[in-house]
Simulated assay, not measured.
Amino acid sequence: MILPALLDLAAVLVFAVTGALVAARAQLDPVGFVFVACLTAVGGGTIRDLLLGREPVFWIEDPLPVAVAGAAATAVFFTHHLLASRLMVLIWLDAIALSIAVAAGVGVAHGLGHPVWVQLVMGVVTGCFGGLMRDVVVGEVPLVLRQGELYVTAALAGGLAAVLTRDLVGPGPLTQSACVSMTFILRAGSIRYGWRLPSFRARPPKP
């Protein structure tokens, strides 16, 4: 369980920075920065642990993730003005955090002996729910719900890559790398090249 724990911490750090950048866009005070950063950083992992019945929740067992998130929020509060485009930095950092968090979620569920479908769901939950809560709290359209973008799809594909790689070579760093790579490639393609899923379009009723 050491590798999923390290991935959790890495995702916490990057997600905390995205939360602080969103707080900067919303012009919040330092307390708001820390709150949004911590919510983003541990939100997905908290829901995952509660759904899996994992006790205690990862950041209660070890407060280091909350400390890392708070430190990241403080650093961004004093340096965010140095960024030329906070939105683009936010979007790309979110893609990195998503990729890491999905691998952590799949790894935690696998380590607890859950079936493959639960592992895939927990990968999506860990990767998506922190950012979803972040955007909802500050009143922005969540990245996860933007029309047609590969977000949940990227997370699910990354989880599948982890499962398939693990079946081929066994659990280990290569499995996690496959998950991170697949998730990031699809998410980056959506950001950079506009890869999309077809969206529902309402049609007028036939006469």
Rank of each mutant, 00 (worst) to 15 (best):
L21T: 03
C179L: 13
Q119C: 14
G172N: 03
A41P: 04
Y151C: 05
G170D: 10
V34Y: 01
F184P: 09
A84W: 12
V57D: 02
G44V: 01
W92H: 14
W117V: 14
V31C: 11
A109R: 02
H114P: 06
L160F: 13
P63W: 00
K206R: 12
V169C: 12
L164C: 06
P30Q: 06
P4V: 02
V89S: 11
I2F: 07
F15L: 04
L83S: 08
P205D: 15
L120F: 09
A10M: 15
S85W: 07
L50A: 14
R201G: 06
T74M: 15
V42R: 00
P171N: 12
V34D: 05
L174I: 14
I2D: 15
A10Y: 08
V22A: 15
V66Y: 05
G43I: 05
L21C: 03
I96W: 06
S199W: 12
P205W: 14
T183A: 15
L50Y: 06
F15N: 07
C128R: 02
A10W: 07
G53W: 15
G105Y: 02
V31W: 11
L160A: 14
V14D: 04
V169K: 04
S99L: 05
A75K: 05
I60D: 13
A97E: 13
R166L: 07
V180G: 06
I91N: 14
M182D: 07
P198G: 08
A20N: 05
R187C: 08
D167Y: 09
L145G: 08
G44Y: 03
L197I: 13
A103D: 02
